[in-house]
Nucleic acid binder design. Structure first.
Lengths: 349, 349
DNA sequence: CGCTTCTATGGAAGCGCTTCCAATTCCCTT
DNA sequence: AAGGGAATTGGAAGCGCTTCCATAGAAGCG
């Protein structure tokens, strides 16, 4: 049928140069005359030649493979939209830069999560890792990965992660502050908060922001009751249900992500509580979930796709620039803009 | 720091056999004495040796790389839960079988979708492809892929795809029939249908099933008004909005997937139409969306994760069994069970 | 104008693994 | 007990690419 795929030698032969020269052209190496470069490129086009990534890896040592790690059980429902958005962004970056992306879901609570992740690095030979919360702040995990000389970029790392590796995220404290300001402006004074899991530092920062906003308005810790959820719809349902009994309960419920807000909304519906008239609810992330539910959620937009793409670019950058040891300031945090998106789930008290 | 990674030669040396023998053990080859096999395995464990997949690919010709293809624009919101479920299942299968999975999103309408996909095969050198609708029925595309000698398994292929390649799916016609029977039993007689895009054959089969159920009850085409959506929440909102004006309009709205049903539900809320009292709405797929909205959707459960995993297994099977030409009946369809999940969005008329 | 210093190119040596084929050993046959 | 086939093992040859080092010219310099 179709003849064998062309190799670098075919290109070399056709353009009348040595194999190394073709390799140089392909890798943008220096010291190649424009004339020769053009001749090679032409042969590449004519033969529809594509480098064999496996051969390149074997010879060159770099696999051009990146892994995106999520903390979720394969069996459980994933925090799907959040993850998809990051993945899509990362994929976009990989396609643009000629890298490949592997996605892995690791049960977060498992004691051997570190072993599993190290295994991914060892088995798949990927040379860069993108960590998502709460792995982004898992100091033990990160140290172990760095020990293996694997490059890392963390998404939404809190203080712990930021100190160790490059990271990308929004100003979560400010995000929490902003959403609180929105509710305070609407006249709310009694709040409930469904926070994230312990160890998810960026979500805790949103909590801090909320408290700062309250303090500015002269309110203290007594103005808010809070619990920790696990970011799933289900936990939103369960935790919200406990809030509806007190007649002097909160008038506004702030959730650490959209899924839990959707769950809270569902619980409210089930109890006949009208949102937002009787209770305002807010989410976080601005995933499609916030637009799908009724009423649509007021939430904080987080540029997840861009975060995914930036993560890849940062990783590739540090991979190709040899990460010149000292001059590469490890642990740089890149802040992206967020914004409050007001929809129908909040109203004046 | 850590010494170089151990190679197959290290294992060979440590266990006192030749490199080939280690290779045989690693690949489950025949003709190795149990005693030798054990000795090698022990050395592997002692050295914490992992095969280098790139080297294996280069030498062996098989990349052990599978690609999962989705038809969606990177910029548009993905049909996230549907895709995530398939991906998760496929990932599970890959991990179990020692393969790697690459996910790609190709804009479906783009004229050069075939070129893009062929490029994926050529550039990434993956040796198996998992197609999702509507690629599953894209005869031109499939023919081209087969011409490249790349193995394919299609998810939810309709007649066109099933004839060409191995495929996995539920009995969509029966799914449509079942959901219609559910509504008919509740007394509904006037229906609306938000169908899928043209060319998405499995979704069309659900339409056929609906018509069959209606016919059995003595109803004809006049009992249902229908339109085509594109499976997005947005299209559900838009298409449903047009249905609410006629006082003698449908009492039940059947949607070809959950996202469009959620959109329709949202549109109903916006118009003050109470679901299910004034209008019953059904979805399809049983993605988490169906549980997140209010009222939760009656829908048809499709075992997406299992479908993803089975797709990988089928692919790997045909890859490793050399696909012995004749005896391998190409185009085998594997049917998985579906079931109607009754939730709050449907009630008696 | 002879000498060093670049700049452009090519030769050779593998990267770690598998496949092909030859060599050895073993176990049955007759 | 000798011959034959099957079961085991190893040697050698790459897979397609990059890296290291050597080789020419071209260019710079006193």
């Amino acid at each position: 049928m179709t003849s064998k795929k062309p190799t670098i030698d075919d290109v070399a032969r056709r353009s009348g140069v040595a194999r190394v020269t073709v390799s140089r052209v392909l890798n943008g190496g220096p010291n190649v005359r424009d004339e020769v470069r053009a001749k090679v490129m032409q042969a590449v086009a004519a033969l529809d030649y594509k480098v064999n990534p496996q051969a390149r890896t074997l010879a060159g040592g770099a696999s051009r493979l990146l892994a995106l790690l999520f903390a979720s059980d394969l069996e459980a429902e994933p925090n799907s939209f959040y993850q998809s958005a990051l993945e899509l962004g990362a994929l976009r970056g990989c396609v643009a830069l000629g890298y490949q992306l592997l996605t892995h879901h690791i049960p977060e609570q498992s004691a051997d999560r570190i072993r599993q992740i190290v295994d991914v690095i060892a088995t798949q030979r990927c040379d860069g890792l993108i960590l998502t919360p709460p792995f982004s702040d898992d100091v033990d995990l990160i140290s172990e990965i760095l020990r293996l000389k694997c490059k890392v970029v963390a998404i939404s790392a809190g203080g712990a992660g930021r100190a160790l590796v490059d990271s990308i995220g929004i100003d979560d404290e400010k995000g929490g502050y902003d959403i609180a300001r929105h509710l305070l402006a609407l006249g709310h004074r009694r709040f409930a908060l469904i926070a994230g899991i312990a160890g998810h530092l960026s979500a805790d920062q949103r909590h801090d922001g909320l408290m700062r906003a309250l303090a500015e308005t002269g309110l203290g810790a007594e103005a808010v009751v809070w619990k920790r959820g696990d970011f799933t719809f289900r936990s939103g349902v369960e935790l919200a249900s406990g809030l509806f009994d007190d007649p002097l309960g909160p008038t506004a419920l702030i959730c650490a992500n959209d899924d839990m807000a959707a769950g809270a909304l569902s619980a409210a519906h089930a109890r006949g509580i009208v949102v937002p008239e009787q209770l305002s609810i807010t989410g976080f992330d601005d995933t499609p979930v916030s637009a799908i539910v009724w009423p649509p959620l007021t939430t904080v937009h987080q540029p997840l796709k861009i975060m995914g793409e930036r993560a890849v670019r940062r990783l590739v950058h540090s991979l190709t620039n040899g990460g010149a040891g000292a001059d590469e300031p490890l642990g740089r945090f890149e802040r992206l803009d967020h914004r409050v998106v007001v929809r129908g789930s909040t109203s004046a008290v």
